[in-house]
Write a protein that binds this DNA or RNA. Structure first.
Lengths: 171, 171
DNA sequence: TACGGTTCTTTCAACTTTGAAACATTGGAG
DNA sequence: CTCCAATGTTTCAAAGTTGAAAGAACCGTA
């Protein structure tokens, strides 16, 4: 076992000797592994940190934050539930629960859609907007502290390209 | 409002005119925003995709996967709960629940630590190890498909450096 | 050896997330 | 017009996650 970690390339030598019918995958090589280990750590640690800060400061998860942000950027601060789910990258079910709770807090109201009775609009209230405005500065400060203060201009550009490339393979 | 999205720099113009006592943060500029929007999307979408694949294939979340992986790489496939929590980047509480469930499935057993009666060891069973071996190939294929097949060697190296840099600011 | 602060783990209750199923509505094909 | 599949949303029950608090054992100091 020369390597270790998340993807367990260290098993590659062992598994070629096994007699199973599964096709042997192409394991990660040393350079890929050297990138994957820190990247996957970042992938789980950074959202956790952003969530922690938002929750501590304002009792809001990043999921909620992006729902509020999406609404605030929409015309009339209004979006259909489905669109909101898509633009905040969350499941319909999760959205329903979250919006229900936010509605109780007075941040959002639901309105029936006049042209499609299946559909509901979610509308950001003034109170919801004010809440978002109150959160935003410390959130941006956190993003700056954890990300942009640590990268030079060139790396910011590299990050942009990499993220855009990888996003193509999702959604 | 010229820009939109997660960090809501579009509010910067509005907020300078407000009369609140909060200090105006340094908002993200265009280049930072152009990197942040896809990056934050990736940050939530990629783990979701990795989780989805692991869950679908083997009924296991990425959290569980990294616990199993950490155990499999440890001497005697054994780690104290605390060490396991640290190396799989999870909270003690979450670890307890997860290990309890895995123990029911026969993947792990808990053993008292002989030298410190507060501490418990988690030990990966043969069955747990076999499960991990069964998962690994399709997981590495997924990682390859979503990440490494899309980046050239230079980008892999850039990603490594960026991830390492940002990790310094966490933990 | 007894105190007290610290460490390691679990428990607890509240909350969130999940996917499947239910419900209501729509729009197109026959 | 009447199906029927597709769409948009909610409900449901099961599972997972959270942070705080509890419990147990450790270790240094007196």
């Amino acid at each position: 076992m020369r390597r270790s970690g998340d993807v367990r390339t260290e098993e590659s030598e062992a598994s070629v000797t096994r007699t199973e019918s599964t096709v042997e995958p192409r394991w990660l090589d040393d350079e890929e592994m050297a990138a994957w280990l820190p990247f996957v750590q970042l992938l789980y640690l950074l959202p956790q940190e952003l969530d922690r800060q938002l929750r501590e400061e304002m009792g809001v998860s990043h999921t909620w934050y992006s729902m509020l942000a999406a609404l605030s950027a929409a015309p009339d601060r209004t979006l259909a539930m489905g669109e909101l789910a898509r633009s905040s990258m969350t499941s319909p079910s999760r959205l329903t629960h979250a919006i229900a709770t936010m509605e109780k807090r007075g941040w959002v109201v639901r309105r029936p859609c006049p042209t499609d009775k299946r559909s509901q609009f979610a509308v950001l209230t003034d109170e919801g907007f004010a809440t978002l405005e109150a959160i935003a500065p410390s959130h941006v400060a956190e993003v700056r502290r954890t990300v942009f203060d640590r990268l030079d201009r060139e790396q910011v550009d590299q990050l942009r390209r990499i993220a855009l490339t990888l996003l193509e393979g999702l959604g």
